[in-house]
């Protein structure tokens, strides 16, 4: 019992920073599941990743102006993310460049520019913080930001749910009934960027997508409907946050990678043993039915 207490509860009871980090992770998990599911359904997983990296130069400019201040870096990151999404969309629409290629180009540019800008003023430690996150330094302000993001995300996704689903699986129908699907696409992208900004403090720009995407990918091996997929992300994302924080605390490892690795663990387990399209079903298919 004492061991369970020491390992599981003591870190949070004894340290305020651990409590705040845990709450931030849970709030992040609550909001980002639906966004992650739609990133997958829109086949935008890699684009989402590119988008997350693109937050860097904005956050770096915020860092240049305001130091390691979360509001400044978040605002910068949000503007940079939206600008990248819009620009890539525009470039793809008006030239023959495919959208994935234009996203890749934008993200490489952004990553390089971001590292350069941080290096102008900051130390390597600052750079590491921005790239890989520092969830143990979450303060009340960041908590408020993450919680607000989660609320906006859930309300926003609920509001645009129907047109977004149709835009995903049958955009022609949306066009035929006279609805501009791109509007909802961009609203969704804005919510995605918002979640990445919120995740950026915890996990850094390089892994901001970890809690968004990995639980959603894992959920796709368990559920066959959008809603159940989104619900299935919740426990996995929350557990990733909790276990990742504990591992990081007890073994002195960086928290961002620890959280993302636990999420990866859920992904691998789901891939192997999920109820839908998993490796297990491939190698040991259940007996077929008569009709």
């Amino acid at each position: 019992m004492a061991f369970v207490y020491d390992w599981l509860f003591a870190p949070f009871i004894e340290h305020g920073f651990m409590r705040r980090a845990l709450v931030a992770c849970l709030a992040l998990s609550a909001g980002s599941g639906t966004v992650g599911v739609f990133l997958i359904l829109r086949r935008m997983s890699l684009m989402g990743d590119a988008l997350a990296h693109a937050l860097l130069p904005g956050a770096a400019i915020g860092f240049l102006l305001g130091g390691l201040s979360l509001p400044a870096m978040s605002a910068g990151g949000f503007v940079a993310g939206i600008a990248t999404a819009l620009l890539s969309g525009v470039v793809a629409r008006f030239t023959s460049l495919r959208e994935d290629a234009s996203f890749a180009a934008a993200y490489l540019t952004a990553l390089a520019a971001g590292v350069m800008i941080v290096s102008l003023r900051g130390s390597t430690v600052d750079l590491m913080h921005i790239l890989f996150g520092s969830i143990l330094a979450v303060d009340d302000m960041s908590l408020a930001l993450v919680a607000t993001t989660a609320s906006i995300t859930l309300l926003g996704m609920a509001a645009i749910y129907r047109p977004l689903v149709v835009e995903c699986f049958n955009p022609g129908f949306l066009a035929a009934v006279g609805v501009r699907g791109s509007l909802y696409h961009y609203a969704f992208l804005a919510l995605a960027v918002l979640n990445m900004v919120a995740a950026f403090q915890a996990l850094g720009t390089l892994m901001a997508l970890g809690l968004l995407l990995l639980p959603a990918v894992a959920a796709s091996f368990w559920a066959r409907q959008v809603v159940t997929m989104a619900l299935a992300t919740l426990p996995m994302a929350a557990a990733s946050g909790l276990v990742g924080l504990l591992i990081s605390y007890h073994s002195g490892l960086p928290s961002g990678p620890a959280i993302v690795l636990v999420a990866s663990f859920f992904y691998i387990v789901s891939l192997l043993f999920g109820t839908h399209d998993s490796v297990r079903l491939r190698f040991a298919p259940p007996a077929h039915l008569r009709a």
Partner: peptide, 22 residues
């Protein structure tokens, strides 16, 4: 309007009823 090649992503996780409801 029923297009010739429907752009429906038939792998999308949606039920027949939900699609018809549209």
């Amino acid at each position: 309007y029923l297009p010739q090649q429907s752009d429906v992503d038939r792998s999308f996780p949606i039920s027949v009823l939900d699609m018809v409801m549209l």
